[in-house]
Design a binder for these strands. Structure first.
Length: 599
RNA sequence: GGCGCCGUAGCCAAGUGGCUAAGGCAUCGGAUUGCAAAUCCGACAUCCCCGGUUCGAAUCCGGGCGGCGCCUCCA
């Protein structure tokens, strides 16, 4: 019955196992020591999006984790090639194109642009190849022809189907048997020999985009493109194949069937599947004030109406109303979203809701403050530090010091790497990053680096060493790789107004008018601005608060000027107006109040 | 029905046989501060329930209860 001649993976052709790294393999359902097909080289293939609509946050889980996987493997000394495919031929794309009266390609281009900008915002910049199905037709057709020649596929009325009964191993990834396959076989079921057979090539229907083939005009089935593209770019057997857990069956099962029947050798050494996102059970989200007791069960389907941007509970998928990734990034910033995704192990289900991202953001601020502290103390830029880029160099650098503080940093580094070695446990690794931040802050405090210790060259050198280790490790996670995005035009004005506010408060403090000083600080709080008094100056940060902080600050300044005038403190009132004038802002006192304009 | 995952503090989340069960958020003390913020110090869980294996289990096995995914397109 079966003609499969496949052999088991051949370890003798693989590299020696990495001494410490283990990866969970969906195929074996256990963690395995990491070996590669070719010594020192790693090929990674990740199933990318079908670009029929804008991306949602669920599409970012795979890219973010594999971005870290590549960074880590390169850090460990491997030469990594990472491929993410784009499916740009598909029923849904055709449907969307027809609805909008544009071509399938235009739909694809639009959504690829959206996908790419989302990747960029999350700092995913390690992808080497973005093959598209429409650009690989020749490879796809070759593979189908080869499968027909070998007897694993058959033509049927312009379609071509894969014959699962010829594949003895069919079902090994998703652990199911052909006999258990049920259903009517979906569209084209009557043309299949077995309900589990799946299309390799679909005959064109009138008006559909199509390509010429030995079986007539048509287009490829969903699964074949991945077999063809991975073969083209990574070879017949490659190292890691990733994708969402929801792709295990049928997509990856069918990829294995196609590739292994065609090549008579294993397709992939490690199947690595990321967990899926689930919408959180708390309702809090923009525009929806509904509160629900924490122990009250979510009701399926709630909040999925037209106006709802996100599902209240349940799986994150387009059909449930997930979406608006670009808006989410606009609100929260890409770094927060990346950090949020990395807090949890990639194989876990992630409960997604915006308050959780904000909570993650609070943790992130600990690091951003430490980076600013470094700049404040040393005058140097954290982002310009040049840490070791390989595990080997890092090992040598961290072994150098005998100082107890540097020793404890070395322990953090080791635990961090141990976590990454254990199936890329980014959550555990981030814990060590926090530990390292605490050690570093404590060192600053103990050595009084913001005071008398500022001139202690040895202490500053240790401080720099600690930050360098932080950079070495955070680079692996793709965090703090570059300064946060530049401010927008309105933020730009805000940044010019704040020194004036801070100066006014400083003056009040100098003359011990703490009531006035505290009034200013209290007024900033609802705007989302926090002040931090340092030796010599005051720093401010903004998070959350009102949307138009600039306008709120202007209102505050106008009020402060009015207060000063009422108290006959014309010097302060004039200072405010003059400095605003210098910033290009004109105040106009009218009967109903003071108005401001930008010139 | 078939296949599979999960249940650790108020919340998020590491740990999957053995030192005091990481870390974050929140909360409460303390140091510091004019007061704050930031930072540091300290407090805060015996791991869903029952039984079993073991010198020893959150971690392995069995049985419950609860939540979730796939089996149709999905990252």
């Amino acid at each position: 019955m079966t003609v499969s001649t496949r052999t088991k993976p051949t370890p003798d052709k693989s590299s020696a196992p990495h001494p410490t790294l283990r990866i969970y393999n969906t195929l074996s359902k256990r963690k395995e020591p990491f070996v590669t097909v070719r010594p020192g080289k790693v090929g990674i293939y990740l199933c990318g999006p079908t670009v029929y609509d804008k991306a949602h946050i669920g599409h970012m889980v795979g890219p973010v984790i594999f971005d870290c996987v590549k960074r880590y493997l390169e850090y460990c000394g491997y030469d990594v090639t990472w491929v993410v495919n784009i499916t740009d031929v598909d029923d849904k794309l055709i449907k969307k194109a027809n609805e909008r009266g544009i071509s399938m390609l235009d739909v694809a281009e639009e959504n690829i642009a959206d996908y790419n900008s989302n990747l960029a915002a999350l700092g995913v910049d390690q992808i080497d190849h973005f093959p598209r199905a429409t650009e690989c037709m020749a490879d796809i057709i070759d593979l189908i022809r080869s499968l027909i020649d070998c007897g694993f596929a058959y033509q049927s009325d312009g379609d071509v189907y894969f014959d699962v009964s010829k594949d003895a191993d069919y079902g090994k990834l998703s652990n199911r048997s052909i006999d258990s396959m049920q259903g009517d076989g979906g569209s084209g079921g009557e043309r299949k020999r077995h309900v589990a057979d799946f299309a390799l090539w679909k005959a064109a229907k009138p008006g559909e985009p199509s390509w010429d083939s030995p079986w007539g005009a048509g287009r490829p089935g969903w699964h074949i493109e991945c077999s063809a593209m991975s073969k083209k770019l990574l070879g017949e057997t490659f190292d890691i194949h990733g994708g969402g857990l929801d792709l295990v069956f049928p997509h990856h099962e069918n990829e294995i069937a196609q590739s292994e029947c065609c090549h008579a050798k294993p397709m992939v050494l490690y199947w690595a599947h990321n967990g899926l996102l689930r919408a959180g059970t708390t309702a809090a989200k923009i525009g929806a004030r509904t509160e629900r007791p924490a122990d009250s069960p979510p009701r399926s389907g709630e909040g999925l109406g037209e106006g709802s941007a996100e599902a209240v509970s349940g799986k994150m998928s387009r059909s449930k109303g997930a979406g608006g990734l670009a808006d989410l990034i606009k609100r929260q910033g890409g770094q927060r979203v990346r950090f949020f995704l990395l807090r949890t192990h990639y194989r876990s289900t992630v409960l997604f809701n915006e308050p959780e991202i904000e909570e993650a953001g609070k943790g992130l601020e600990t690091f951003n403050r430490l980076l600013k502290r470094y700049a404040r103390i040393t005058g140097n830029d954290f982002y310009a530090l040049k840490p070791p880029t390989t595990r080997e160099d890092g090992e040598a650098a961290s072994a150098a010091g005998s100082d107890p503080v540097l020793q404890s940093a070395a322990v953090c580094r080791q635990k961090f790497l141990a976590a990454m070695d254990d199936d890329f446990n980014t959550g555990g690794a981030i814990g060590e990053l926090f530990e390292l931040a605490k050690i570093t802050n404590k060192f600053c405090d103990d050595a009084d680096l913001e005071g008398a210790g500022k001139t202690d060259a040895a202490a500053i050198a240790h401080f720099t060493s600690l930050l360098t280790t932080l950079k070495e490790l955070s680079n692996i996670l793709g965090l703090f790789t570059q300064p946060l995005p530049a401010t927008t035009a309105s933020d730009d004005l805000l940044a010019k107004l704040m020194p004036l506010v801070i100066d006014l408060r400083a003056t009040a403090r100098r003359i011990k008018n703490f009531a006035a000083a505290d009034k200013i600080r209290a007024a900033l709080a609802p705007i989302g601005i926090t002040l931090e008094d340092r030796a010599g100056n005051t720093e401010w940060t903004r998070s959350g608060g009102v949307s138009d902080a600039t306008n709120a600050i202007m209102k505050l300044l106008i009020q402060l000027r009015a207060d000063a005038r009422a108290a006959k403190d014309f010097a302060t009132a004039d200072t405010i107006r003059n400095r605003l004038t210098d910033l290009g802002i004109t105040l106009e006192d009218r009967a109903g109040g003071t108005e401001w304009t930008r010139t």
